[in-house]
Design a protein around this nucleic acid. Sequence first.
DNA 1: TTGAAAGCGGTACCAG
DNA 2: CTGGTACCGCTTTCAA
Lengths: 333, 333
Amino acid sequence: MNLDQVARRAKVSTATVSRVLNEASLVKSSTRDRVLKAIEELKYHPNLHARSLAWGKSRSLGVIVSNLENPFFFDIYKTIEGDARAQGYEVAMAHTGYRAEQLVASVRLMIGRRVAGLAVVVSERAPELMEELADSRIPAVFYDGGAVRANATGIRVDYRRGIGQVVDYLHGLGHRRLGFVGHDAAFGPTSEPWKAVMDAAARIPELEVRAAAGADTLEGGRQAARDLLSTGFQPTAMVCVNDIVAVGALRELRERGLRVPEDMSVTGFGNVKLAEFCYPALTTLHIPREQIGHIISESLLSTSEEPAAGDTEIVIDPELVLRGSTGPAPRGS
Amino acid sequence: MNLDQVARRAKVSTATVSRVLNEASLVKSSTRDRVLKAIEELKYHPNLHARSLAWGKSRSLGVIVSNLENPFFFDIYKTIEGDARAQGYEVAMAHTGYRAEQLVASVRLMIGRRVAGLAVVVSERAPELMEELADSRIPAVFYDGGAVRANATGIRVDYRRGIGQVVDYLHGLGHRRLGFVGHDAAFGPTSEPWKAVMDAAARIPELEVRAAAGADTLEGGRQAARDLLSTGFQPTAMVCVNDIVAVGALRELRERGLRVPEDMSVTGFGNVKLAEFCYPALTTLHIPREQIGHIISESLLSTSEEPAAGDTEIVIDPELVLRGSTGPAPRGS
DNA sequence: TTGAAAGCGGTACCAG
DNA sequence: CTGGTACCGCTTTCAA
């Protein structure tokens, strides 16, 4: 099942078979037919490894995301994939589950595959690795990737501003005790969302904030909400690091008999589709995931040979979307 | 950045470099160190295409799913991926968006990659292609794949039985007019779920059933529910083809001011995590997705060289899970 | 323990 | 328009 067998059967050289396969230079139609027939009969499928090896380059993009299960990441991935396909590129996906080691493995994998471009859409970090990536000369784009490496585009969300808006909004509604529901990879002093919350809280002294975190899943959000409440702390609002975790929190509240938003306000982050479909619908911060995807693919697939501007940092401004999950703080709280 | 350069720098042959890379035969540790140093300095990453070409085989599994966005598919994918990784396999993922043409392209891609095994977890069909796959001698497992090809394992859900249970249950609660919310790829007389509904309806003459379908997304479910209701038909229960679509329907009902389950019962299919987290929580049919994933990977990764039993068909029996989205039919309906 | 060289399956340049 | 052939980068005998 290789070129040679096809060539032999069609009584031509491998070069000719290769030609009909790539529709490149013209082949006499009678010969072409013979070859096609042989291919058909032999159920021949070209070995893609051999092909890309010979080709030198790989007309494929790599996309690494933290958690494909979270629609936030999926939406970005899908957009990139669509764009890439439209330009005739394959897409190789990898997800890390927020583990730095897995990120390292994935990047190495992509370098090994000699992808034509790499999108790194993850929250976790692996600084040493980025150097390796840079040396590989593979064009890369980072989303949320912390310090942007030289000669690569970076995209990040202005958490400080987004969370700031949410906190101000809640404060304006009379809330004084806030719970922050993070997830393991967006927790602790190195995490942007966390810093943003702390900043906002520091700005408004009368605010009291406590935090908890679980996995980046529905169940994780529920668990975090439970942990938060079981400490005895009685917040009147919960600021969640993303919509999925927020939906998880909603369930915990429901099962405790707490009404949203009468007894407790809840906010999300991202504005994924589910935020509109859950009940109550989530007040959240809109992040334009498709736009992010397009920016990424555009930057990676830039027709021009030049490294697409390079060294750019694009900052996304979240936009507050008000829905049913937030309301005035309960009286006498 | 290839073997040769590393070899040259370390003053050894490419064979030796290859050896230290594969930790195969022993290399004198002083030489090994020299080589490792060279690799380090050159930031060398082996070309995986060349490697698998030389290797002949590919220690990687292919997984094709219809819609990764739907957690049902994702859960299966994730399980397979986990198992495969645990055995040192790479996983190549492709999704088809329920399009047969895309399925064809994806299978060809996987054959071209010479994957060691292929999981085809899709609802759409492409019979001609399956023949091609069979000839490729790649071990394959199909989920929901219709007619099982010779010498391959097939797994399918007993829709007839599952839907039958739901319909009987609703009928027992007094429901007489049922709406079926499908999605485009699970609609029409060739679709199993559809046939199952029609069968059940035929069994109980006093039942009236109408159907509608949209995309396999939250929004699609909402749209389908809207279409169903806008015909003037007034069902008292909606049987949905999966949980996602059901959550979409829930929203449409909510916005029309219809209470669930007082005014309308709703059922899902699959029992994905979201089914517990939405409001009201969904009565649904549990499909053991992780078990399915394990069966698939086990069958594909069977240590024995023999084609893993082959020709097996495994039928999954869905289990009814009762939650808050169903109740007695409204009085006087 | 190490090196030389023959593939693995294609592509593409150079003649004819 | 077609065939011969030198690679692409790595693995793997076979000898040394």
